[in-house]
Amino acid sequence: MIAFVVRRFLLGLFTVWLISVASFTIIQLPPGDFVDAYIAQLAASGSPVSATEADMLRKLYGLGQPMYVQYGKWISRVVTGDFGESMEWRRPVTEVIGDRIWLTLLLSFAALLITWGLALPIGIYSAVRQYSFGDYAFTLLGFVGIAVPNFLLALIIMYFSFKLFGANVGGLFSSEMTIQPWSWAKAWDLAKHLPLPAVILALAGTAQLIRIMRANLLDELRKPYVVTARAKGLSETRVILKYPVRAALNPFASNIAYLFPFLVSGSVIISIVLGLPTVGPLLVKALVAQDMFLAGTIVLLLGVMTVVGTFISDLVLMWVDPRIRHQMD
């Protein structure tokens, strides 16, 4: 089992390296480079850049060199923790990303907890009371949750909370707190702002997970081992929670791996709508400006997080399902 974990870990490292190559290549693929985008941007605002200036900039960032040289320079600095300087912001990438990465993680984790907290009991209820009024109601809500784009939901909720409670729900901090250094007051402010965006982010995933849980549990409820458990004289609640629910839990574990990348790349629009200081909107801006080091770093981070998420979900699956544990021996 330890050998399996170690092997998985090494494979993960290898995958991360592949991701770094791929992300660097993809960022280089569009025609032109940061300087072209920069010149175009300045020209649009009425201050043209001369050819010599442009050449100087290219030399500064090493843009004229072949791609593998650029990659080599970049990756050798990345492994030492230096992610380069953002060309657009003219500040170190780590500083630009700063708290955003932790806020994104926090938001993902909160959304994950909400997804599980809602999907698990509703999924169980819908399966055990199949075709009841409650089941139909949740099914309807679930399909609405899947069908309605999340950013629209975000807009609607923002509108009503502003209209009804006079609350401005954008962002993760109150405006006066945004630039303050971390303190208990700021953390409390974050705690107050966190639930709403987390719920909105969680809803689509929740609806899907309810469907998965319901379908899985319906399958499991028909299996003979459930009758065996009943024949022992266990209470119905105990029977269902101990046996079929446990067997239907696997998708919850595998869900961990996909959630983080989904929250970063799939929820860019919500983040923009709600003004969330997460990584998503930053990535979009960096890509538009061809801000190589910033975009490269974010894509690399996403890759690492996905690999780590998969690794964690593998460990959780091993813990949940003894068959997986024993197949490896």
């Binding site: 299996k223 003979p224 081992y225 009758v227 065996t228 458990a229 009943r230 024949a231 022992k232 004289g233 266990l234 209470s235 119905e236 101990k242 046996y243 446990r246 067997a247 949940v320 399902d321 003894p322 068959r323």
Partner: peptide
């Protein structure tokens, strides 16, 4: 009633099934 019936299942009347594989939970 159900509660009394649960005290019959097991101590009074027990059941053995056709498929020994499917009749066990694989998780315990």
């Amino acid at each position: 009633p159900q509660a009394a019936m649960r005290r019959i299942r097991g101590p009074e009347i027990a059941l053995v099934f056709q498929e020994p594989m499917a009749s066990f939970s694989q998780h315990y």
